[in-house]
Design a protein around this nucleic acid. Structure first.
Length: 743
DNA sequence: CGAACTGCATTTTTT
DNA sequence: ATGCAGTTCG
């Protein structure tokens, strides 16, 4: 027990409460019953959450293992642990602070049998999921053109996000895919996972729901156990996570959710803003605490962001304020094209740098990943160091995935997906045909691939040469598996990579020729071996790579940060540049096309997130012309620029650009979202004014149109701004009206 | 089995 | 344009 940490009397032991403001303090001290903390950007959300957790422990309201604290990212979980440890003055092992998925996995490992798994189940990632779905589609002779594996996998994931197992999806949205086979595919996918003793990310939560439903006494145990529940970023929860929390909270009803409806930017991956909007209905007797005092930004930045977000409907509503003194206005800067924009931002950064500003305190936040390229080019020219955040993560690299696959097959022989990944990597003469045979056999006998191979080796189904290679590989695996208990796991990993020829494969590529990245890949493998040292054993390590996919960057060198707006949530910088505020790019056309007003509002929240990242300076820019996929398009400024309160911004445009731009008031409704084409084909250097506020083209059924790519065709059907066109030289396709013109 | 070719898509990202 | 993936040929 924690006798040595016997809580001190509250009045003398809670100095951390003294430094909180009134609302923060009430959020921390309302320990019992459901509490929703609406925490605006920069209002000390994390501080409240960590202090509350420390406070619970300090008052002795609960033991560490009686508090469930969930976050979305490992980074947030780590930060939480560290900060609580700092407040308390000691670390806690074995408490329940972690991601939804990690907690789900933890519970599931204890009760795996109840949902058709063994406790050693492996956790597969998106890549494995897609490959599995692909196999199942093939087995059902579903045309991949008609139903891409990626899309089916996504659909399944969406169902899981909503807590829907296969038997409940009939008739729901999406079940008509694959000629109505989608629910069948999903069911088979789940069966297959069970056979493989594997779970995907969605299962980690959904199977918890199944578990709780089927075994009420297990649910009751956890309901009793978790006296207090704390949830971070509640606006990002999906239905499955919501249901999970609601079940667990039914025990003590002490659930505290922290979030900000204005920062909900993940609906596209299943998050339901509705969860936070409905909190008071879902948890009767809920108290709501608003954190509105902002400690981060200047009044102009706050007012600009607030003005923007006020155009959204269905908000819970908050009014951020600060007592920081007036600072600079938010700058809105118009330029001729993307290149000029990069030059402008580059020189601004250069000037700040020369005035002694730290590059770590400067960020360029873009809407889509490829936008960073222009800025990279420019910063290289200016010799300003930068880092691009949110690229490919360590674990996603092919060589890391391969290496991990070897380890997975050793620790978990029935992990078919891992085995399949590396069975012919490096090339060892086991081709597609052989794999096909093994698959068929495994499927027919309902056994794993590994077992199937062992059985096939006893027959002469596979031709002798291949059989020999295969035998060799299986013997290797047997041997390595034997060494699991005799050899330290980092050494074993090294042995495996060497003896399998995997290391040699990259060494060859490094030596021979055109694989300039081979050396880097070898380094990555070394890093992987080194990372193994941090874990007790192989199993622990494998759990880590499945769940904790960090992209840790040593932040000690002074660099400008380039990243997407999504990636910037939760971060802050002195100076923030927000380029590309043009209709079609931001708000992104696709968000508008696919989700209409809801999509527009989410884009607007993204803008809100972007502006509020800045402490002192925020600069929005837009270009009149932009090259997209090597085609010049003219653009008009984002409607979001018009929505910024004029008194909070200072507009500076290159001479004559957008001469009619008045900084606000041009339009003020959401009605423009479906206007269609926002980037118009155009030659470089042609006058851009002509496309300014050009009314959208209207088409009629039967009309002849021209499309850049498909040529001439006739309109068959019109659905909003989506046209169904029978092309003369291509098949009938659905296209956006913005991509065709009257012929 | 591997190399060349062709066609196609190209928002956002965590676990 | 470009890159990637899937397919087809040698």
């Amino acid at each position: 027990m924690t006798d040595i940490h016997e809580p001190l009397p509250a009045h003398s032991a809670t100095p951390y409460l003294e430094t909180l403001n009134e609302s923060q303090r009430s959020a921390v001290e309302q320990l019992d019953g459901p509490v929703l903390v609406l925490a605006g950007a920069g209002t000390g959300k994390t501080r409240v959450l960590t202090t509350r957790l420390a406070h619970l422990l300090m008052l002795g309201k609960a033991q560490p293992w009686e508090i469930l604290c969930v976050t979305f990212t490992n980074k947030a979980a780590r930060e939480m642990r560290e900060r609580v440890a700092q407040l308390l003055g000691y670390e806690n092992e074995g408490w329940w602070v972690g991601t939804f998925h990690a907690q789900g996995a933890r519970i599931l490992r204890n009760h795996a049998e109840a949902v058709g798994l063994r406790s050693t189940f492996s956790i597969i990632d998106t890549d494995d999921q897609i490959r599995l779905v692909k196999q199942i589609l093939a087995a059902n002779s579903v045309d991949e053109k008609n139903c891409p594996p990626r899309m089916m996998s996504n659909l399944i994931q969406r169902w899981k996000d909503r807590g829907l197992p296969p038997e409940k999806v009939a008739g729901t949205e999406g079940s008509e895919h694959a000629d109505g086979m989608a629910p069948t595919i999903y069911a088979q996918y789940q069966e297959r996972l069970s056979t493989l003793n594997a779970a995907d990310f969605g299962d980690l939560l959904m199977l918890n729901l199944t578990l709780f439903q089927n075994e009420p006494e297990i649910l009751a145990k956890y309901q009793k156990k978790f006296r207090y529940i704390l949830v971070d970023e509640y606006q990002d929860t999906n239905v499955s996570q919501y249901l999970w929390l609601r079940l667990l909270a039914q025990g003590h009803s002490n659930i505290c959710c922290v979030g900000d409806d204005d920062q909900a930017i993940y609906s596209w991956r299943g998050a339901e803003v509705g969860n936070i909007l409905r909190f008071e209905d879902d948890f009767p007797g809920a108290q709501t605490v608003r954190l509105e005092r902002n400690y981060r930004s200047t009044p102009n930045i706050l007012a600009a962001a607030s003005g923007l977000i006020s155009h959204n409907e269905g908000r819970l509503g908050k009014t951020l304020w600060t007592d920081i003194n007036e600072g600079e206005k938010v700058r809105v800067h118009g330029v001729w094209d993307g290149e000029e924009e990069a030059r402008y931002i580059g020189s601004e950064i250069e000037s700040l740098h020369s005035k002694g500003h730290n590059l770590n305190e400067i960020a360029v936040l873009v809407r889509v990943g490829f936008q960073t390229r222009e800025f990279e080019d420019r910063l290289i020219t200016l010799a300003l160091p930068y880092r691009v955040l949110g690229g490919m993560r360590f674990y996603e690299r092919a060589e890391i995935r391969d290496a991990v696959a070897y380890l997975r097959v050793i620790a978990q022989p029935d992990d078919d997906l891992a085995l399949e990944r590396i069975i012919n990597v490096p090339k060892r003469g086991i081709g597609q045909a052989t794999v096909q045979t093994m698959h068929q056999f495994a499927r027919a006998e309902n056994i794993s691939l590994y077992t199937a191979i062992l059985r096939l080796l006893e027959t002469d189904e596979i031709r002798a040469a291949t059989r020999k290679k295969l035998r060799g590989l299986m013997d290797d695996f047997d041997r390595w598996r034997g060494q699991l208990n005799t050899m330290r796991h980092p050494e074993l990993a090294e042995t495996v990579l060497d003896e399998s020829g995997y290391t040699a494969m990259w060494q060859d590529k490094a030596r021979s020729d055109k694989s300039p990245d081979a050396v880097g890949r070898l380094d990555n493998l070394k890093e992987l071996i080194a990372a193994l040292e941090d874990f007790e054993n192989m199993t622990g390590f494998l759990e880590h790579v499945s769940l904790v996919m960090d992209n840790e960057e040593k932040g000690d060198d002074d660099k400008v940060t380039l990243m997407t707006l999504h990636g910037a949530k939760g971060l802050e910088f002195d100076t923030v540049f927000l380029p590309g505020w043009e209709e079609g790019l931001f708000p992104h056309q696709r968000a508008l096309d696919e989700s209409g007003t809801a999509g527009l509002e989410e884009e607007r929240r993204l803008g809100y997130v972007g502006i509020t990242r800045a402490r002192a300076r925020s600069t929005i820019s837009f270009a009149a012309n932009r090259r997209i996929y090597n085609q010049w398009k003219s653009a008009i400024p984002s409607r979001f620029i018009d929505e910024l309160p004029p008194e909070t911004v200072s507009v500076e445009s290159a001479s004559g650009l957008y001469g009619s731009y008045r900084g606000g008031g041009r339009h003020n409704s959401n009605a423009r979202y479906d206007r269609g084409n926002l980037y118009r084909d155009k030659l470089p250097n042609s006058a851009f004014q002509e496309s300014f506020d050009t009314p959208s083209q209207s088409f009629d059924v039967g009309e002849r149109v021209f499309h850049q790519k498909f040529g001439y065709g006739e309109i068959l059907h019109i659905d909003g701004n989506k046209l169904e066109v029978a092309f003369e030289k291509a098949s009938t396709k659905k296209v956006m009206d913005s991509f065709v013109e009257k012929a």
